[in-house]
């Protein structure tokens, strides 16, 4: 009696636990490539190299925000010799100053990876304001 119930329960658990695998059976979409704006292409170099940025941009932003808000430091001299305004969304040499199109740059991967950073609850994009 209880044996059957236990086996049924275990089976249900295994199926539920493997949800991500069977849900995505039949192929998933390929990872999207973020589109660089003309300005970003022309600049050539970002704060860190491409792969480092991809992996660590969130920790960099975290570091920047503490530097700006708490230490009043706003200028960033990157290891590669370039200078930046430590800001996500304000000014020419901020992140969005160069990567002008948030939808094509940020959102592409964020949407694919199902991450929903709350940056945009406060930080504005030029496009959004003009809408």
């Amino acid at each position: 009696m209880s044996k059957n119930a236990i086996i049924a329960g275990l089976a249900a658990f295994v199926i539920a636990a493997l949800f991500p695998f069977w849900f995505n059976l039949g192929g998933t979409d390929a990872a999207p490539e973020p589109e660089l704006s003309a300005k970003a292409k022309a600049a050539g170099k970002c704060v860190l190299d491409k792969y480092d940025m991809r992996a660590n941009h969130m920790s960099l932003l975290d570091e920047w925000r503490d530097a700006v808000v708490r230490d009043a430091d706003r200028k960033y001299d990157a290891a590669n010799g370039k200078q930046f305004q430590m800001s996500l969304s304000t000014g020419e040499d901020s992140c969005l100053g160069c990567h002008e199109d948030k939808e094509k740059f940020c959102d592409k991967c964020h949407t694919y990876a199902s991450v929903d950073p709350y940056c945009w609850e406060c930080h504005t994009t030029p496009k959004e304001i003009n809408q």
């Binding site: 706003r74 200028k75 960033y76 001299d77 290891a79």
Partner: peptide, 15 residues
């Protein structure tokens, strides 16, 4: 040890 650590954070000279 990351490249980020080699970078410098400063105030703008006009601040």
């Amino acid at each position: 040890s990351t490249p980020a650590a080699l970078a410098a954070k400063t105030k703008h000279p006009e601040a």
